[in-house]
């Protein structure tokens, strides 16, 4: 479990608003510290945003098609894409009307988060960083998001879930739990560690 807001995630994605003073970031034995964000994305790293941006005039479908093409560098096969999209949308309980709406414009908090998970599923990264995807969601929405994460998870990818609370971990089986305080990992454990924190809080690590 990570505390330290979104700094880590943003540093990995090389958000120009964050300045890295030292250290390197390696991904699959490659130094990505100073790569541009779009290159990092094409290397297979995805981040879901706490507050996804709104893009008026660009429909969700067109955006996903365009992004998939950019990430994979290959033309998108329309039929396959549509099938995939329909499947994920029904799993995530996304209304098909939303697909023709402008990306994130007028979406509720829950719809935006589900849309981030949909993007993750479509772009199929090697590493997905989910930055407080569960914050502000009700129990049902957390369940839906968890279902999306479960669907995504396989032998060949990794997921880094950033959260302050342990609720989402009740419905997900995770391999490791890390506690990050003031920029340092102070404790690493397994799912049990999440339960401990739920009972005792973070105070003991501070």
């Amino acid at each position: 479990m990570v505390l330290g807001k979104s700094t880590t995630a943003n540093a990995i994605l090389n958000n120009p608003e964050y300045i890295k003073t030292k250290g390197t970031i390696n991904f699959e034995e490659e130094d990505i510290t100073n790569m541009k964000t779009d290159e990092i994305s094409r290397k297979g790293i995805f981040m879901s945003f706490q507050l996804p941006e709104e893009i008026p005039g660009v429909t969700v479908t067109n955006f996903l098609k365009y992004a998939k093409n950019k990430v994979t560098g290959k033309p998108v096969k329309i039929f396959e894409f549509k099938e995939e999209l329909t499947k994920y949308m029904s799993e995530l309980n996304i209304n098909s009307k939303n697909m023709e709406r402008s990306l994130n414009v007028g979406f509720s908090g829950g719809e935006k988060k589900k849309n981030e998970i949909l993007q993750m599923l479509i772009l199929n990264p090697k590493l997905a960083i989910l930055d407080e995807t569960d914050s502000g969601l009700d129990v049902d929405a957390i369940k839906t998001v968890s279902k999306g994460i479960e669907m995504f998870k396989n032998e060949n990818n990794a997921i880094l879930i950033i959260t302050h609370n342990t609720k989402i971990l009740n419905s997900l089986k995770v391999d490791y739990v890390h506690v990050l305080i003031n920029g340092k990992i102070v404790k690493t454990g397994n799912q049990e560690l999440a339960k401990e924190i739920e009972e005792n809080g973070y105070a003991v690590y501070k």
Binding site: L13, N15, P16, E17, K36, T37, D38, I40, S41, R42, F46, M47, F49, P52, E53, I55, F63, Y66, A67, K70, V71, Q119, L123
Partner: peptide
């Protein structure tokens, strides 16, 4: 906004 550009770049789009 720079935030919007960062968001789109994180989805594989160049600036």
């Amino acid at each position: 906004s720079d935030k919007t550009i960062f968001y789109l770049m994180s989805r594989g789009l160049s600036e």
